[in-house]
């Protein structure tokens, strides 16, 4: 299989980067799509979170954090609102509507925080001691991380105060549970091919 990769380590490295970037890009491209079978009560799996977990699970804390920051930045960009929106309460006198137009982009909760926490925590888990490397454990980690990530977002919303905190937390229950279930179910789809490739790469590295 893949004879040309066996011969040249440099090519192998290049190929590795292509696979890393390609798989992350694929996850980004799936995000806005509504694939049949991936929806539960209007919620879809959190593909970026799955990717970060799969990446961090056999890597160092720093590598996990880096993946979290990079993908968090990208997802922030994909959800940002730069056109001003008229905020709450303050528009009671209609003519003042103009004055209170604000830039929401800054106050929005960031994905960087949640994804970085996920990357770091996943890398920190003492997998060799507590959990075995298989689909079930990956699914479990993704489940836990999805709950943590949504909680981080909800906390950011509560602190920011633009939304009604009570509504945020009822919304959080709905989103966190569905997203955790779906993400953990779909995690193997990302984990299996990437893990196979990285194991193959490792074995090559050790023999050469």
């Amino acid at each position: 299989m893949l004879k040309f990769l066996e011969a040249a380590p440099r090519l192998r490295h290049l190929f590795n980067w292509l696979i890393i970037v390609g798989s992350a890009l694929l996850c980004l491209l799936i995000l806005p799509a509504r694939l049949p079978g991936t929806e539960l009560m209007g919620i879809r799996p959190n593909w970026l979170l799955i990717w970060v977990v799969v990446w961090s699970v056999k890597r160092t804390v720093w590598q996990g954090a880096l993946a979290g920051i990079a993908l968090g930045l990208i997802q922030d960009g994909m959800t940002a609102i730069n056109v001003p929106t008229v905020p709450d309460q303050t528009i009671f006198t209609l003519s003042d509507e103009t004055k209170v137009v604000v830039d929401i982009a800054l106050s929005y909760p960031s994905h960087i925080i949640s994804l970085t926490i996920v990357g770091v925590l996943t890398a920190r888990i003492q997998k060799q001691r507590y959990i075995q490397e298989d689909f079930i454990s990956i699914a479990l980690i993704v489940f836990g991380m999805a709950v943590i990530a949504e909680t981080v977002t909800a906390v950011q919303y509560s602190l920011q105060g633009f939304r009604n905190p009570a509504l945020v937390w009822t919304e959080h229950q709905r989103i966190a549970l569905s997203s955790a279930i779906l993400s953990s179910l779909w995690a193997p789809v990302v984990y299996y091919p990437l893990n196979r490739w990285w194991e193959y790469l490792n074995s090559k590295e050790q023999t050469s």
Binding site: L25, L29, P32, A70, I74, G77, M78, A80
Partner: peptide
Amino acid sequence: LGVALFIRQTQGALIFELY
């Protein structure tokens, strides 16, 4: 990080175009 920051600054324009 540079690429990620670029995508953040352009609000993911590249990704939505690709999509």
